[in-house]
Design a protein around this nucleic acid. Structure first.
Length: 491
RNA sequence: CGGGAUGUAGCGUAGCCCGGUUAUCGCGCCUGGUUUGGGACCAGGAGGUCGCAAGUUCGAAUCUUGCCAUCCCGACCA
């Protein structure tokens, strides 16, 4: 039967789950909190990864790989960071199993194989990386050190959600070392801009660049920058972070370099990351009740061609013409699939590829070939047009660009329509229930943020970088404030 | 980790309260045929550790206990 998708109005969470599962992006696994990323979902991640990887390399970074396991003593070296992650670490305590003599065919942990020092499965890699950098950095000539790694990390979350929060996830983490504070701060902002560029121009998700409040700051960072996106239910989702780590890790791991004046100095550090969580952002930003809506630039398939035929003879004719179009599209670098499988009919295929969010669908039948036209349907607006086959490639090319722009504009408009400004705490609470971003004054204290969070479940998503300096009074405490910050309920 | 719910073929399900032949139905799958412009139809067929493990019983999908996984709500969360 048809793959029914729960509507957004009916149950937003279920709608999201339906898209992930029925859209073929991921599956639950036999492991609590861990998911299987299926080929279609992984293809999406590969496209995202490839674009980001190029952006990192274009900004001077290189890739490396560090161990999955971190000795506990290293992990705890930077205290704040260790504390921040302590509650969600998986720990390796033994290295061997043995046959259970009491219970044939079962294995038990060999108590004699206890590790002298426990290994932490990385929730992030600062510790192991800075412990390594210590040996790599001696002189200012070794700096800057600009390294990225693509890896998996584990955070033992209480409650998990496909892509948005899983116990294991894939990400990239950049870790850089610099000779000066200024340079490290510039790097932090540079990578934030790279993320914003990627998320807006490839994923078509508008973001707000900002700084995290102390409560939301990365443990071990002096300053955390972020990009925040709005989902269709009005909730905020952090799409990427970039941290200025100061000299915290340099001091914890004793990473010093000789400067030009022959004096030892601690290096300045940054780290930055985005994860498979971005896929969750993508889904919730654009998709609709018919399924996924993927931005052409990173969609695994940009075009699908569905043939319509009657009998073997006409199938041949249609195949021939369709493959010619496929060739033309491919020569333009367009990711296209010709689905002439005989186990489902055209209508089924239409619905299936809509569910999968393929940006453009072409339908080609005998009637079209006679008239030298092809039907082209776009996923975002579901509009259909009939164009001359000779012009089909250029039509598709421009359509892909148009779809990319349209879904970005649509998301931008949605965000604008759901962003409010208020100076009244009562109105603030009412607006929160509608969902969306609220620009309000805040006195800058963690206590006030905490109190508002207790009261409303909303947190400060960020202090926007492009925010106007505008004196006002804190919405909660009435104390003076110099700038509005963004409040929202968040994922 | 607390509260609630769920788990029967690839998917969706009936049966469970009140234990008793060969576990129901639909979709999907396989074979053959007719079909194909928005989720086709006919005929035949295959497919099951009833989430897992103990227990109660002559007998367990059904009753009991434990465990595992998922969903929702909370707590937690960079």
């Amino acid at each position: 039967m048809s793959k029914e998708i729960t509507s957004r109005n009916e149950d937003y969470s279920q709608w999201y789950n339906d898209l992930v599962l029925k859209g073929g992006l991921a599956d639950y696994s036999a492991v609590r909190g861990c998911m299987v990323i299926k080929p279609y979902g992984y293809a999406l991640w590969e496209n995202m990864r490839d674009v980001l990887d190029k952006m990192f390399k274009d900004t001077g970074h290189v890739n490396a790989y560090f161990p999955l396991f971190i000795p506990k003593s290293l992990f705890e070296a930077e205290e704040k960071n260790a504390e921040g992650f302590a509650k969600e670490c998986a720990i390796v305590t033994h290295y061997r199993l043995k046959t259970d003599t009491e219970n044939k065919g079962k294995l038990i942990v060999d108590p004699e194989a206890k590790l002298e020092e426990e290994l932490i499965v990385r929730p992030t890699s600062e510790a192991i990386i800075w412990n390594t950098y210590k040996d790599w950095i001696q002189s200012y000539r070794d700096l800057p050190l600009l390294i990225n790694q693509w890896a998996n990390v584990v955070r033992w979350e209480m409650r998990t959600r496909l892509f948005l929060r899983t116990a294991e996830f894939l990400w990239q983490e950049g870790h850089t070392a610099h000779a000066t504070k200024q340079e490290a701060m510039e790097e932090t902002e540079k990578m934030l801009n790279v993320y914003a560029d990627f998320v807006e121009n490839y994923m078509a998700v508008p973001v707000i660049k900002g700084i995290k409040s102390a409560n939301e700051r990365f443990a071990g960072a002096d300053e955390t920058y972020c990009i925040e996106a709005m989902m269709q239910d009005g909730k905020a989702l952090q799409a990427g972070t970039s941290h200025f780590l100061g000299q915290n890790f340099a001091k914890a791991f004793n990473v010093q370099f000789m400067n030009k004046e022959n004096k030892l100095e601690y290096v300045w550090a940054t780290s930055w990351g985005v994860s498979t969580r971005l896929i969750g952002a993508l889904i919730m930003a654009h998709s609709d009740d018919n399924g996924l809506v993927l931005p052409p630039k990173i969609a695994p398939l940009q075009v699908v061609i569905v043939p319509i035929y009657k009998g073997e003879e006409s199938k041949k004719t249609v195949d021939e013409k369709a493959l010619e179009i496929v060739g033309n599209l491919k020569s333009k670098g367009i990711r296209v699939k010709y689905d002439n499988s005989d186990n489902s009919r055209p209508g089924w295929k239409f619905a299936e590829y809509e569910l999968k969010g393929v940006p453009v669908r072409m339908a080609l039948g005998l009637r079209d070939i006679e008239n030298n036209v092809v039907e082209i349907a776009r996923r975002d607006t579901k509009e259909k047009i009939s164009v001359s086959i000779d012009k089909s490639v250029e039509t598709v090319e421009s359509l892909l660009i148009e779809i990319q722009n349209n879904i970005f504009e649509k998301a931008l408009k949605f965000r604008a329509d759901n962003t409010y400004t208020t100076d009244s705490y009562e109105e603030f609470k009412q607006l929160l229930d509608k969902g969306g971003f609220i620009l309000a004054h805040w006195d800058g204290t963690p206590e006030t943020e905490e109190a508002i969070k207790e009261d409303t479940k909303a947190t400060i998503r960020c202090i926007p970088l492009d925010g106007k300096i505008e004196p006002g009074i804190c919405i909660y405490s009435g104390k003076p404030s110099s700038q509005r910050v963004i409040f929202a309920r968040a994922y």
